[in-house]
């Protein structure tokens, strides 16, 4: 189900997101179709990075879901990287599973927790044949 092309994409991405949120963002996360940043952990504004569209939110994933992912995840493809709170990742992972996608990389970051919420970097990629590109 996971194609070789996908694998190459993700292995390039995963180490880039494996450090602290600043460093993770500073390194070019090549291979992603979009990057999702949780402003609670990564407050400074960022334009699209290395031509990768950056979506920002602050804890509540409703807008990101309704305006972007709900549509994107209906079609094949679309590898999404993120640096978010563990609470937001829980919601996104549940939605991703429902849409034939999986968290293929997940790293707890060194930044301090906010009210018990850990920052995490991750990659969600298509998994089910109905959405693998």
């Amino acid at each position: 189900m996971i194609t070789r092309r996908d694998l190459i994409k993700w292995t390039a991405v995963a180490p880039a997101l494996a450090t602290g949120s600043q460093a993770a963002f500073a390194r070019a996360p090549q291979g992603l179709d979009a990057l999702l940043l949780d402003e609670r952990f990564s407050p400074e504004p960022a334009a699209d990075y290395a031509r990768i569209p950056v979506m920002r939110f602050a804890g509540d994933v409703t807008g990101v879901w309704y305006d972007h992912l709900d549509r994107r995840w209906r079609d094949p493809g679309y590898v999404l990287g993120g640096i978010t709170g563990s609470d937001a990742l829980f919601v996104l992972e549940t939605l991703a599973n429902h849409h034939g996608r999986r968290v293929v990389s997940r790293t707890a970051l060194a930044e301090p927790n906010i009210d018990g919420v850990r920052p995490v970097s991750w990659v969600i990629a298509p998994h089910h044949p109905s959405v693998t590109a």
């Binding site: 509540d60 409703t62 709170g85 563990s86 609470d87 829980f90 906010i114 009210d115 018990g116 919420v117």
Partner: peptide, 16 residues
């Protein structure tokens, strides 16, 4: 889906 982020706003000790 806002309910899943209320914990981080200090509203109850809620981590989904």
């Amino acid at each position: 889906l806002d309910i899943f982020s209320v914990g981080s706003r200090g509203y109850g000790n809620f981590n989904p």
